[in-house]
Design a protein around this nucleic acid. Structure first.
Lengths: 227, 227
DNA sequence: GCTAATTTTCGAACATGTTCAGAAACCCTC
DNA sequence: GAGGGTTTCTGAACATGTTCGAAAATTAGC
């Protein structure tokens, strides 16, 4: 709340940065709390004073990566284009942003998927990170040309965000050089979504689309709460 | 290879059973290796002699649960019915079989999703468990009336299996009483799949279906290998 | 400026997963 | 049944995430 930066904030920031650097360089397992504390020049107790758990430190890394993703996706979102093209750009930017962490991706995903974990994309703690990530897909849908049918506007971004989680899970297990298989998934998947949304305009599809939307609503009652 | 049962097998089986019981009753975290060993009447070292890690013990539990799932799904698969009905039955049986573990589901999923983990559904170690689970969806598709279009037979079971992973992930985070939301997801999701497969017969859908099948092939080059 | 409260830091302590050097039990050969 | 080799078992030891009571530093009140 105050204007100046109290000392405690500086210690916290230092621990945060050291932790992110270590996680980036040596992965989840080999980044011990003792190593973080030592590299930050404090005791382990102090590290725990500022961050409740190791997972909370991982959460900071997530935020950093998501900011990077948003940065990389910005030009795509500003450029216009079809839904498929925009989606391809945003998903592709995600693969680019995640790249450096592939070696430890599994560890991170494992941490993220644990419901209790602060780093879970569904947890309340990662609300800001999730909102940032979600908003990218709002923009993908909003700025598409030709415009996405209004009926789909409400649910589609959420669906695309979930699809990105799936892509991430796939990427974690992808050992092909340059993540070639994940790239293919992104390219063909985004094109497929474009085609499906185009088809959704046909009268024959109305029934299925309604069913899908109802499913989405039934399953997702609280738009922004904890799940 | 021998006919009789050596003593070592008995110790191993005892550890296995105690571990499964503890995991079932008190969850992943509170099931310590020391507790398992003590309850089995051996030392911790002995437990590690028979099982390389705690995850490997969890893997044993998975196998058990999957057998239970298969048992529950059997009558559905024997009964015939439409694709949607059969799918609903098999997915519903999964929710039933998983039920007792909901409290610790997240811990288990977290373990399962770690690529290195023996318990990962994509790992070589869980090949048998995966094959068992996969085969259920082969049967779902094979026995459906009216028959599933031949073009879809190859890829659909894999897709439905993956969808079950998604449902499981959803279930883990589902805190509604009786897993009501997950049940809705299963009911409406299986119906939606039924509708989609029905629509896939229409000429207008031929393009999308081809794209989807191509995507599946491009992304999944090795049908039964490690991924 | 001094005292009391509050914030921040420390480091020892605890429980856990895992390892390992060696002891014990077992099995086979002679 | 004695000796040697293999399998099985043991429990102490290690590193790790986390907790906690107390010390130190800082701030607030007067």
């Amino acid at each position: 709340m105050s204007g100046s930066t109290p000392k405690s904030e500086r210690t916290r920031a230092r621990v945060r940065e050291v932790a992110i650097g270590l996680l980036r360089d040596v992965g989840y397992e080999r980044t011990t709390m003792r190593a973080v504390a030592q590299a930050a020049g404090v005791s382990t107790g102090t590290a725990y004073y500022h961050f409740a758990s190791k997972d909370e430190l991982v959460q900071e890394l997530y935020l950093e990566v998501q900011r990077d993703h948003a940065r990389r996706a910005a030009p795509v979102l500003a450029a216009g284009g079809t839904l498929g093209e925009r989606l391809r750009g945003v998903w592709g930017a995600a693969v680019d942003a995640f790249g450096p962490f592939h070696g430890f991706g599994g560890e991170f995903v494992s941490v993220a998927v644990r419901p209790g974990s602060a780093a879970s994309p569904f947890s309340a703690a990662s609300g800001p990170a999730r909102a940032l990530s979600r908003s990218l897909f709002d923009e993908v849908v909003e700025g598409a040309t030709p415009a996405v049918p209004p009926r789909l506007r409400a649910g589609l971004p959420e669906l695309l965000w979930l699809a990105q989680l799936g892509i991430t899970l796939f990427w974690v297990h992808d050992t092909s050089p340059g993540f070639a298989r994940t790239r293919r998934l992104v390219d063909q998947g985004s094109a497929l979504v474009g085609t499906l949304v185009r088809l959704a305009r046909l009268p024959v599809a109305r029934g299925v689309v309604d069913d899908a939307l109802r499913l989405l609503r039934a399953v997702h009652p609280v738009p922004d709460g904890r799940a």
